[in-house]
């Protein structure tokens, strides 16, 4: 059985890769995928620690995270599509409606 810390390090690696992706990529869709990946890395730590402490609550929380992620994907993609209709682009650098 691998140490729990190994799982945590793997999760940290994946999280870092996802975060870096968010910062580096310009395609909104890929940024979106990176965020999903970060969520998953957190899920991994939760499950690993749930086993570590012999406690089911971590897993319940992961379940909730999945549901929220599903909702987020649905809304996020809808926003993306609406923006594409409007602006004909999914380049994150061209989406600046938040500007003051």
């Amino acid at each position: 059985m691998p140490e729990t810390s190994y799982y945590l390090i793997l999760a940290a690696l994946i999280f870092t890769v996802g975060a870096t992706g968010v910062l580096l990529r310009r395609n909104a869709l890929i940024i979106f995928m990176c965020i999903e990946m970060m969520l998953n890395s957190v899920n991994l730590t939760l499950i690993a620690l749930a086993r570590q402490w012999g406690n089911l609550e971590g897993q319940i929380f992961v379940f909730m995270v999945m549901a929220v992620a599903a909702a987020e994907v649905a809304v996020g993609l809808a926003i993306l599509i609406a923006n594409v209709r409007h602006q004909k682009s999914i380049n994150i650098d061209e989406i600046n409606l938040l500007k003051w």
């Binding site: 968010v22 910062l23 940024i31 600046n96 500007k99």
Partner: peptide
């Protein structure tokens, strides 16, 4: 506040 999401993320 330049309105660009990456800046906020950064």
């Amino acid at each position: 506040h330049n309105g660009l999401v990456p800046t906020y993320a950064l």
